[in-house]
C-alpha cells in the first residue's frame, strides 16, 4: 500500500501561499464526502418529490471528488483494494465476526419475537436479482467507505484503532437518525475497516456487506429497522 500516512507540515514562504497539511487535507476530503451524502439524504430527498434524479447531483460531485483524489494521490487500483491475491486472508478475518454478528442478530430477533425469514425483504423479487443488487450496492458502499474514507482516515491518524473508529463513525453517521441502523453500521464499520487495513480486498468486503445486510433484514424486526430508511425519509 502506498498510503501517505506521514503528516507533512504546511509550507509557507513569502512567494508561495500556505497550503494545508496532508492530514488536514485528508480530513477535509472526508468532511466533503460526508456533506455530499448528507445533502442528498436530508435536503434533496426531502425537496425532490417525484424527481428523484436530483439526489444524484451531490452523489455525482462526491464520486468526482473520490476519483480525482485517487488520481492526484497516485493510488493504484491494487492500493484501493481491487485485487484477489489476499481474498483468503480477508475471508479468514471476516468469517468469525460475521458468524458472531449473525448469531447475535438471530438471537435478538427471536427475543423480539421475529423468526428468521431469508425472503422477507423483497419477497416479490427473484433471489438471484436481490443477491446481485445487494452485492453491487455493498461494493459501492465499501469502495467509498474503505478506498476513500478509511485511507484518508489513515492519513489523518495512521493505521490503527483511531482510523478504524473514525471510518466506522462516518459510516454510522451517514445512517442518522435510524438508531438500530446506526448501531449495526457502526459495528459493521469497525469490522470492515479493521479487515481492510489488514487485507484490502473490496470484493470480500462487498460479499460480507451484502450477506450481513441480508442477515440483518431477515432477522431483526422491520419495525426497529424502519425499512432501512435514513435521513429525512426516516420520518416518512
Amino acid at each position: 500500500m502506498t498510503t501517505e500516512s506521514q503528516a507533512q507540515p504546511a509550507r509557507s514562504t513569502n512567494s508561495e501561499p500556505s497550503v494545508p497539511s496532508d492530514r488536514a487535507l485528508a480530513g477535509w476530503e472526508i468532511v466533503s464526502l460526508g456533506s455530499s451524502a448528507l445533502i442528498a439524504e436530508w435536503i434533496l430527498s426531502a425537496a425532490a418529490g417525484r424527481t428523484r434524479l436530483i439526489v444524484a447531483i451531490p452523489l455525482a460531485f462526491a464520486f468526482v471528488l473520490v476519483i480525482t483524489s485517487h488520481v492526484l494521490r497516485k493510488e493504484s487500483l491494487r492500493d484501493l483494494g481491487f485485487r484477489f491475491d489476499n481474498s483468503l486472508r480477508a475471508a479468514k478475518l471476516l468469517m468469525l465476526p460475521m458468524i458472531v454478528i449473525a448469531v447475535l442478530c438471530i438471537g435478538l430477533g427471536l427475543i423480539f419475537g421475529t423468526r428468521p425469514d431469508l425472503l422477507r425483504w423483497h419477497p416479490e423479487r427473484p433471489i438471484a436479482g436481490q443477491l446481485a443488487l445487494g452485492f453491487a450496492w455493498g461494493f459501492v458502499q465499501q469502495y467509498v467507505l474503505q478506498s476513500f474514507v478509511n485511507r484518508r482516515a489513515q492519513i489523518v491518524w495512521q493505521k490503527g484503532v483511531r482510523s478504524v473508529v473514525l471510518t466506522a463513525f462516518v459510516f454510522s453517521f451517514l445512517h442518522f437518525p435510524n438508531p438500530w441502523l446506526m448501531l449495526v453500521t457502526f459495528i459493521g464499520g469497525l469490522v470492515w475497516a479493521f479487515v481492510y487495513q489488514r487485507a484490502p480486498n473490496l470484493f470480500a468486503l462487498a460479499i460480507s456487506h451484502s450477506l450481513m445486510t441480508w442477515v440483518i433484514v431477515s432477522t431483526l424486526p422491520m419495525s426497529a429497522l424502519n425499512h432501512l430508511r435514513i435521513g429525512f425519509k426516516y420520518f416518512a
Partner: peptide, 25 residues
C-alpha cells in the same frame, strides 16, 4: 503528494463546496 496535486485537490474541494451551495440554493 506534491504541492501541485495538493493545490488541485484544494481547488476541487472548494469548487465542489460552491457547486453544492448553488444546488442547495
Amino acid at each position: 503528494m506534491d504541492n501541485k496535486s495538493r493545490a488541485r485537490l484544494i481547488h476541487l474541494l472548494i469548487s465542489k463546496s460552491m457547486a453544492e451551495a448553488l444546488v442547495i440554493t
